[in-house]
Design a protein around this nucleic acid. Structure first.
Lengths: 245, 245
DNA sequence: CATCGTAACGGCACTGAGTGCCACTAGCAA
DNA sequence: TTGCTAGTGGCACTCAGTGCCGTTACGATG
């Protein structure tokens, strides 16, 4: 096993004119500028490397492919999501956990609006990039589905429910993100997603696996105002019922 | 406008040893055999063309890329689906229409099991192919979503519902297809999909658009038995509420 | 200060996908 | 026979991506 683990990462204070971070961002910046100026396909890796002041070979040491420049750190974010789900409270409603996770993902996009917007423009025009993005979205969806599958394990049709619910949450997220991008960052995306996720969760979670309750006991459920939207009324009823149990 | 439209396509009965169809299927066959024997990436287009007895250049006249050999006629099928949706009964429940369409798509896969199974093996191993397939699935989902969006036009949150429902139906389809592929074609996929779609449709269609109710009116919702499953209780509550209105 | 190890770099050469161009040929119609 | 056209094969070219290697700059160690 040649896994020597490199004695210590050594922060590497700062090289002459380079430094890992600097080179990487210089390449990304140069690439995005060139893409915007002359299009994605018309831009060669040579040009990007030249513009960043490094060799062509170095470009591929920082990015696996030309497409990858447009999606920086996607893998890390996915790993972050995985961690988030693995560390989630096992007692919590899986769909709620998933909804919160989707909100975290959305916030990743909202955190750097310029980058997200620029990427949006690019992915709309270049089909290769769009495909790449769809593939990476699918990876999130797979992670979501796996999480739900584990939580629904044992239930009949649990796998199907997991797949469908994951797809629904991801679709809600993407829809809100798209709206936000189309509005050029004006919309209150967080609130919209919260509402959307609430709707989705409500539609998908009304199939509970036989909760064990006290048998033969009659209860009176309190007063509700019908002037509220039906969803709210239902929620109130649900809460009341849960409290009484 | 040099749009001469070529006087008449002329079926072109049959050339010497070629013929469009023959060359195309020869290329596809040779490609799949080589992929199976030595892997996708290790196979060059040169080898495929040689094995099919045509020139390398000719390969690219029949397939846009090496990946395309694995997904023959995907565009045509998508077009078929579009037609199907455009010609659907406008009075029918959109979700039911979508479910039926998903069944049609599934049947396309079931129609040629060997091809589907072989492709499944390939897409599991080669990430480039998997990405390509995901992208093509997304195209179906887009078409589905567009159909629903048009049908839900005007409803508040209709776009969101359309996106989510389309994703859910596609997820159900994919889940069933995957199960069928994993069972190596043994399962009764048609029945499974019908059931799955039924479930999804049921979960997604119980959202009525803001029932207009009398304002400011307090109502007491009656007695329910908590020994019944929570789902039943909720349904009772809902029914009671609706009746009172 | 001298030496060594190492990590990043630049350059070179190579494979292979995909494209543009052009000459060739087989069938078909006048 | 003479075009006309569609399909073909080959050549040359661009560019993405990879393997290899010599070089350089830095840090550590004595």
């Amino acid at each position: 096993m040649p896994e020597v683990v490199t004695p210590a990462p050594k922060p590497r204070t700062g090289r002459t004119a380079h430094g890992r971070r600097r080179v990487r961002s210089a390449l990304a910046l140069a690439a995005l500028e060139l893409f915007a100026a002359q299009g994605f396909e018309a831009t060669t890796v040579d040009q990007i490397a030249d513009a960043a002041g490094v060799g062509r070979r170095t470009f591929f040491r920082y990015f696996r492919s030309k497409e990858d420049v447009v999606f920086p750190g996607h893998d890390e974010r996915l790993a972050e999501v995985v961690e988030l789900l693995e560390g989630a409270d096992p007692a919590a409603d899986p769909l709620v956990v998933l909804g919160r996770t989707a909100e975290v993902v959305l916030e990743m996009y909202l955190a750097e609006p310029e980058v997200s917007l620029k990427r949006f423009e690019l992915t709309r025009e270049v089909s290769a990039l769009r495909d790449k993005e769809i593939a990476s979205i699918d990876r999130y969806q797979r992670v979501f589905a796996r999480y739900l599958r584990e939580r629904y394990a044992g239930e009949p049709g649990g796998d199907l429910r997991a797949a469908v619910a994951a797809a629904a949450v991801v679709a809600a997220h993407n829809h809100v993100l798209r709206q936000w991008l189309k509005s050029r960052g004006e919309l209150d995306a967080k609130r919209l997603l919260r509402e959307a996720v609430e709707q989705v969760t409500a539609a998908l979670s009304d199939r509970r696996p036989e909760p064990s309750v006290v048998e033969g006991e009659d209860v009176v459920v309190g007063v509700v105002r019908t002037s509220a939207p039906a969803g709210v009324v239902l929620k109130q009823l649900e809460d009341a019922l849960r409290e009484i149990r």
